[in-house]
């Protein structure tokens, strides 16, 4: 697998239509780093990921992937540059079977990877990583449970051999046990050298598994630092994250 790529967001202002949501946000994620982005509801966490992937209007600032400026690259070209985006909802194709969902990643893999044989190898690896998906591979993705669906979405993204992964609240509305499993998988992905940007509601767990963290409040970065530092900070948790000591 290829190494991860660093990604830098420089002073970005973006939103929907004329409504500006992000008022100058700068973040960076180094090679193979797991960066958590946390903050209260409506602070623009999800918008930030959408902006990085190109689904919003960008008014100012720029986004760099490695050395390449990708501010204006349309979303459908980003997977070919090694980016993968897992949205919070509607992240699988419900009327396609699990296997078809996974096979679609070949479109990107083929351009970046080595071909059909390598793909089936990678697919086998993925099935090993998510045994439940192998069990359900003939089933329609719409019939999966929430956790299985989230795993399928992550698996689809992994199959494209990404170098940067953007995960939007992968554990929202999941049972604690399943959420724990997802967190474990995310940590595993980062350990493989892929750069991961993780947006999470569950700030405590996200910071516990991540290397660094950003606290986003009202479209601005309120604090950045090492995850452990944020967790042990006497005020931050209480102020922004609803963490009670």
């Amino acid at each position: 697998m290829e190494e991860g790529l660093p990604i830098r967001v420089e002073n970005i202002k973006a939103g929907y239509g004329k409504l500006e949501i992000l008022h100058g946000v700068s973040i960076r994620a180094e090679l193979g780093e797991l960066v958590a982005i946390v903050g209260p509801n409506g602070s623009g966490k999800s918008t930030l990921l959408k902006t990085i992937f190109g689904f919003t209007n960008i008014y100012e600032g720029r986004i760099l992937l490695g050395d390449m400026d990708i501010t204006k690259t349309p979303p459908h070209k980003k997977p070919y540059l090694g980016m993968a985006y897992v949205p919070q909802v509607a992240n699988v194709f419900p009327s396609l079977s699990v296997e078809e969902n996974l096979r679609l990643s070949y479109i990107v893999f083929r351009k970046r990877g080595d071909g059909a044989r390598k793909f089936s190898q990678v697919l086998a690896d993925i099935y090993e990583m998510f045994p439940i998906l192998k069990e359900r591979r003939k089933q329609k993705a719409g019939t999966l449970s929430g956790g299985e669906r989230q795993m399928l979405a992550i698996a689809r993204a992994l199959l494209t051999q990404p170098r940067v992964m953007l995960l939007d609240e992968p554990t929202a509305a999941l049972a604690p046990k399943i959420a724990e499993e997802i967190f474990r998988i995310i940590r595993e992905i980062a350990n493989k050298g892929i750069t991961v940007l993780l947006v999470e509601q569950n700030a405590k767990r996200a910071l516990e598994i991540s290397d660094r963290g950003y606290i986003l409040v009202q479209g601005k970065v309120a604090y950045e630092g090492h995850s452990r530092e944020i967790l042990s900070h006497p005020e931050l948790g209480k102020l922004y994250l609803g963490l009670l000591k």
């Binding site: 992937f53 689904f55 980003k78 509607a90 699988v92 194709f93 419900p94 396609l96 479109i107």
Partner: peptide, 14 residues
Amino acid sequence: RAIASNPSLAEASG
């Protein structure tokens, strides 16, 4: 079929 099922995800999937 993927586009019919979820157009925006299809775009994000390249």
